[in-house]
Design a protein around this nucleic acid. Sequence first.
DNA 1: GCATTTACCTAAAGGCTTTAGGCAAATCAG
DNA 2: CTGATTTGCCTAAAGCCTTTAGGTAAATGC
Lengths: 189, 189
Amino acid sequence: MARAGLTTERVVRAGAELADEAGFDQVTVSAVARHFGVKVASLYSHVKSSHDLRTGIALLALEELADRGDDALAGRAGKDALSALGNVYRDYAREHPGRYAAAQLRLDPSTAAASAGVRHARMTRAILRGYDLTEPDQTHAVRLLGSVFHGYVTLELGGGFDHSAPDSQETWNRILDSLDALLRNWPAN
Amino acid sequence: MARAGLTTERVVRAGAELADEAGFDQVTVSAVARHFGVKVASLYSHVKSSHDLRTGIALLALEELADRGDDALAGRAGKDALSALGNVYRDYAREHPGRYAAAQLRLDPSTAAASAGVRHARMTRAILRGYDLTEPDQTHAVRLLGSVFHGYVTLELGGGFDHSAPDSQETWNRILDSLDALLRNWPAN
DNA sequence: GCATTTACCTAAAGGCTTTAGGCAAATCAG
DNA sequence: CTGATTTGCCTAAAGCCTTTAGGTAAATGC
């Protein structure tokens, strides 16, 4: 019987594609096995558990996002950098909704520490170098940007902004403008 | 055999409690049945399906949240109202993490239209009456507030702001200040 | 007190997860 | 190139969750 040539890498990647097509909560060891035309038990050589599979997808997504972020930030500063990073998250979520959902998965501390999550924090801080903030304001600002980006993308993805004028793109532009203005003019205390 | 006295209401409420204690993804018809000391099949007279149970919890959460919001907004305006509504979401999420997660569940359009979700939109617009915005800026602002509140609460709940100074409360205060400043001084175009 | 409704039950089928143990294909040694 | 080892996928099986069908007993109503 010919072998399917599975590896952890391929299994996780197939899971990620399934997540984008059918939703992250539809990602199941069984479904991935079906995709490869293989019995379920066979996947357990490549993935420790269902949760492990999901974690793998989350780590993949975090890394892809961080890679895109690095690319987008290269050579940019100030509002340019701000918009670029915001668009990375927004575009990624629209292109890969399942992966984006996976990236929100709560990781246990040691996994999180070894993930690309730390690169994300660094990227947001890099943006703030274009503005004049020192600690602890920088941390407040990091959290604000994280909240807005994540919140907006999540609500938009959930369809919250469909079916009503003005369209979502316009609001997004206004929000980026507002954040830029806010950071340039950060309230003293 | 004595009856347990189940009703849809009680079943959903038990599900909500389970969500808060164990996480929304742990909410299962079986678990709720165990809680009542009843066979699983018995719950299917009160709840159409597992999905229906989860939807019920989501609707409950949306309503509880809207009730709290109405209370909090009564007699307040401007920054006072802004803080009050923000705190409603944040406090609710901390007190009832499972219910809050449930409230994010994607509802089908007709269910959503009949839910307390519409009250939420109204509440946010009510806040903006204290600021000088007209359409379409008002809609942009509604979306911004929604994004920040939801994003912040989600990240905080996920533990994103633990283990690092300054503490989350301080950031939250600064964010409310910033939003107020931004709304008072909304960029002309 | 009897009929009807209602609440909960047993039974059963189907799906997902996970572990244990087996066989055959790929890989490697001499 | 052949025999030994490793590795990949398989069968089997147990446990839990969902959902439907049909039965019995408790509550309700006349």
